[in-house]
Design a protein around this nucleic acid. Structure first.
Lengths: 139, 139
DNA sequence: GCTTGACTTAAAGCTAACTTTAAGTTCTAG
DNA sequence: CTAGAACTTAAAGTTAGCTTTAAGTCAAGC
């Protein structure tokens, strides 16, 4: 399978596949005349990577995980640790977003004119501070 | 107030304040010998900006909002539109994170050895696809 | 044999919100 | 008066996960 075929099948760009290879998530495949030729297991590998990025794992984390798998290491502890950490991140994100939501709803019901608005906002500063302290890296 | 003082009081770096000025969120203040001197209302302005970024608004959105305020435009429609849009984003983020959470919890209870894992993961692909379609810009 | 589409590389570009750096100026305390 | 802290600028660097570009090579169909 050429890279374009693999890309179309997996639903991403060929450049992404090359990027995964450069990042060490995908083993360099055989080549024919300089061009990459993939065996069919490459597809499931790529799909797994997409799946994991979709779940919010970073490429670095996925690489860790995949390298464990490549060694045929039992999935157990490695995966559990990564997933548990990610679960905590996701839960924090939910909590933060909930606070944000109620704050936004509250502010939407506050009909203050012009700059008085700011004053009202800043009265909420204890809440704000809690929010700011919760700020995550991303997502 | 010099920029360092303002920065310390507001809890950010002086470079961030200069950045806000360059981005047009903060009016250029008076200068003494080339150095910025801020009146006290600059503090509430900066705090408002921090507040809004903490709520997930981008600097571009905040600029829009602040320029409305500067004109003494009534807050009404402009703010309502921005906040409503942001509320939708936040709600989508919550929904997405909930799906992620249940997926992660499910996977944590799946004790499959080595690469079989991947197969199990990929069986979830309809869920995955829904997740992927939900992917937001950030946060 | 030739065209054309698919492939190759390294390096730069993208986004957001800043920070860091480098080189120079000004303020302030002693 | 002088040391050093704080300020100034423009430009480059940071993070992640790619994409785009430029310039060139290869493959497949006619």
């Amino acid at each position: 399978m050429k890279i374009g075929q693999l890309a179309r099948t997996a639903g991403l760009n060929a450049s992404a596949i090359r990027y995964y290879e450069k990042r060490g998530l995908l083993a360099p495949p055989q080549r024919t005349g300089g061009q990459r030729r993939y065996a069919s297991d490459a597809l499931s590998r790529v799909l797994l990577i997409r799946f994991a990025t979709g779940m919010g794992f970073t490429l670095a984390e996925i690489k860790l995980f995949l390298n464990g798998l490549r060694d045929n290491t039992p999935v157990g502890p490695r995966w559990k640790k990564l997933a548990t950490r990610k679960l905590i991140e996701v839960e924090q994100n939910i909590a933060r977003s909930r606070k944000l939501k109620s704050l936004l709803q509250g502010l939407l019901h506050c009909h203050c004119p012009s700059l008085q608005f700011c004053v009202n906002c800043l009265r909420l500063s204890p809440k704000l501070r809690r929010l700011e302290n919760m700020r995550m890296k991303r997502r």
